[in-house]
């Protein structure tokens, strides 16, 4: 049980949660993710950590409601709890002074790229942040993006905010203008990451992409998140999630991510019909779980007390025999 201490909407269908998870908060580094589960019949989904506060013992995640689980999560409010959350998982981003680093993020991917951008800036890089969104309502964390970078550009598909066009348009412009870019991190939808790789690959710019393959356990045990890098197979959960973009087979990634699409759509349809009931059910389940934890704690306490009493009793008996 992990309490949500803050929940707020940050964009259209995008919500940010601050969750009590002290172990994860202590260990989190930029680029790492968590896996969470909302209820006893729920699936496990990976989400990148946006920030953590080791002193407050909290982690911040940012979620776009797309499938059933993410939509359900986005119905949760401050004071609710997350049933299970585990992490931090995966390798942290490589942080060093590359020179000029460009961070290319698609909408909610911005949240995932922010901690790495900030760390790169602190490591002495000149950070260029390009955030791409469909439209104005989906532009998120503008102030934080500006703080985490030396130069920030906002691109929208429809031109309703910032400049009109895709993130690669900006990237191409910068390169055409003769800007030297030494390192690129792309986080977002697979077609976007592939397009970035197609721009930077021929120029030999070191480019990392954060892959969002389907996962179950997140510890390397199932191999469901395997991605093809050249001819070798790697597990996104333990070998990634960031990989060298020039090696990634994006077609295989897209194909594998579509594996359960039909079921996901059905599941979402059902959810939309029964949203209120599902939410009520989860809250009831969480309350039961809370009561169960309280009961176990009390039991443990009484077990301890009994042990203390019996120890005291043993003591008296011994004394008695000595006398």
């Amino acid at each position: 049980m992990y309490r949500i201490v803050e929940a707020r909407s940050v964009g259209q269908n995008i919500k940010q949660f601050v969750i009590e998870a002290p172990r994860i908060a202590r260990k989190q580094q930029p680029g790492q993710f968590v896996i969470l589960r909302l209820h006893e019949h729920g699936e496990r989904i990976p989400l990148t950590i946006k920030a953590s506060d080791p002193e407050a013992g909290t982690v911040t995640i940012c979620v776009q409601g797309i499938g059933k689980t993410t939509q359900l999560l986005n119905c949760m409010e401050e004071g609710d709890s997350i049933l299970d959350i585990v992490g931090p998982l995966g390798h942290p981003s490589e942080i060093k002074n590359f020179g000029t680093a460009a961070i290319i993020a698609g909408s909610v991917g911005t949240a995932m790229a922010l901690p790495t951008a900030l760390a790169l800036k602190r490591a002495g890089n000149h950070v260029i942040f390009v955030e791409g969104s469909r439209s104005r309502e989906m532009v998120v964390f503008e102030a934080e993006v500006r703080r985490a970078s030396d130069e920030a550009y906002f691109m929208t598909d429809d031109g309703s905010y910032g400049e009109k066009g895709l993130v690669t348009k900006k990237l191409n412009e910068l390169l055409a203008a003769g800007r030297a870019i030494d390192f690129v991190l792309a986080v977002g939808p697979v077609p976007m990451m592939r397009a970035v790789a197609q721009v930077t690959g021929p120029r030999g710019i070191k480019t990392m992409v954060s892959l969002n393959s389907i996962m179950v356990d997140g510890t390397g045990m199932c191999g469901g998140c395997r991605v093809l890098l050249g001819n070798t197979s790697k597990f996104a959960c333990v070998d990634g999630p960031e990989f060298d973009a020039s090696l990634v087979n994006f077609e295989v990634l897209m194909q594998r991510n579509a594996m359960y699409r039909e079921k996901e759509c059905k599941s979402l349809e059902q959810f939309e019909l029964h949203k209120a009931e599902e939410l009520a059910h989860i809250r009831a389940e969480l309350a039961t779980k809370e009561a169960e934890i309280a009961r176990l704690k009390a039991e443990l306490q009484s077990l301890d007390n009994a042990a203390l009493e019996s120890a005291a009793l043993d003591g008296t008996e011994k004394e008695a025999t000595h006398v």
């Binding site: 019949h41 729920g42 699936e43 496990r44 059933k68 689980t69 179950v216 356990d217 045990m221 199932c222 191999g223 469901g224 359960y260 079921k263 996901e264 599941s267």
Partner: peptide
Amino acid sequence: SANEFLTRVNLMRAYQPSDYDAP
């Protein structure tokens, strides 16, 4: 992998698809 198949079915209870979310 057998690990994934069995984990989905056993841990995530995918053998009861109408009740559980993980496919």
